[in-house]
């Protein structure tokens, strides 16, 4: 049984014309101890997908069809009480923009310690305190800063506080939503190493969201690429990001748009055009307008996400044609 299994998930937000699907039929699986990267352009629905797992979506949003199984339990069917017990204890989040995710009027120590005693009443204050000190040490913040307030820390340090906080209950799954976007390159590398080593040490699974593919390539076992609310491609990092591994034209363009990790940086070669307006009715492949190699059927038929072997799956008519040709 996988730790997390998302099947055909649909999530809508209201808009003046009714509603639109920011996540539109997405599948995603995370195994125990696995690191999964989630990539995609801004606005493609990464955060929406991630926050649906601990059910932290803003008011007005709505989970339509589909299911989310966590550890075998369908969380979409769970009561609010049942969900509360899972939050942080089993699933914790390093929120996008951690700068504001810490409460300015409480000390960082108390914020890290807070969830420990909520989820396990048998833990004494002293134990929670000790555990917090341990966590602070693990993320490289001196214990004497326990009583300091968030504004007394730099951005990178606050990010590390967030990570310590996310680990305070030793959850099974950590969702890290762009944990390093606002930081400089050196700090980014530090924090990534830290995340990776901590999760390895405590054998946690992680969903790491970033639009920076090189980050995912360094850290993750598997990667998933979203485009306009749909999964475009997913598979083992080595395959998808390997030479000629990416099968979806969008992934290919993304890979060439980012500075190559192995080679020296090159000028960013953006993808012309914009993602489609999701509030409009979608027909065919959502990437078709921007795709160099679109076929005529791409404009009318929605490509299914299909397994092309080696744990990789792609939602592209071209890829399915290749596969059909091979068979």
């Amino acid at each position: 049984m996988s730790l997390l299994e998302i099947r055909d998930l649909h999530i809508s937000y209201p808009n003046p014309k009714g509603e639109f699907f920011a996540v539109d039929g997405v599948d995603l699986t995370i195994e125990k101890g696995e690191f999964v990267g989630l990539a995609g352009e801004s606005g493609c629905g990464k955060t929406t997908l991630a926050l649906s797992i601990p059910r932290l979506l803003p008011r007005g949003s709505h989970i339509g069809a589909g299911s989310i199984h966590f550890n075998g339990v369908d969380t979409t069917a769970l009561s609010e009480e049942g969900m509360r017990a899972l939050r942080w204890k089993e699933i914790s989040v390093v929120f996008q923009g951690a700068l504001n995710a810490l409460n300015p009027v409480h000390t960082i120590g108390s914020q890290i310690a807070e969830p420990i005693r909520i989820h396990d009443e048998s833990v004494s204050k002293k134990q929670a305190h000790d555990r917090t000190l341990e966590l602070l040490e693990a993320v490289g913040i001196p214990a004497r800063r326990f009583e300091d307030f968030p504004h007394q820390f730099s951005g990178g340090m606050r990010q590390r506080v967030m990570i310590a906080m996310a680990l305070s209950c030793m959850p099974k799954l950590v969702i890290a939503d762009e944990p390093i976007t606002a930081l400089d390159v050196m700090t980014q590398a530090q924090i990534l190493d830290l995340l990776r080593s901590l999760c390895d040490r405590y054998s946690l699974s992680m969903l790491l969201i970033s639009h920076d593919l090189s980050v995912l390539a360094q850290t993750c076992d598997r990667v998933a690429v979203m485009y306009a609310g749909k999964m475009a491609e997913q598979g083992p990092t080595s395959r998808v990001f390997g030479n000629h591994g990416a099968k979806h034209p969008y992934t290919q363009r993304l890979l060439s748009a980012y500075p190559n990790i192995k080679h020296e940086r090159k000028f960013i070669d953006g993808i012309p055009g914009y993602p489609p307006d999701l509030s409009q009715e979608q027909v065919g492949c959502r990437f078709a307008d921007r795709c160099d190699v679109a076929l005529s059927r791409c404009a009318t038929e929605v490509p299914e996400l299909i397994d092309i072997g080696g744990g990789q799956s792609v939602a592209c008519h071209l890829a399915s044609d290749i596969r059909a040709g091979v068979q």
Binding site: P54, L56, R84, A85, L86, R87, W88, K89, S92, V93, F95, G97, N100, A101, L102, N103, P104, V105, H106, E114, P115, I118, H119, M165
Partner: peptide, 26 residues
């Protein structure tokens, strides 16, 4: 609507703790 209120919810706090411990003082 502040980010830290979402954090509080994410931590699994009850509604009362969210409002009083995290929202009220701010």
């Amino acid at each position: 609507s502040e980010d830290y209120m979402l954090t509080a919810r994410g931590k699994g706090l009850g509604r009362r703790a969210i409002v009083w411990r995290h929202g009220f003082r701010n």
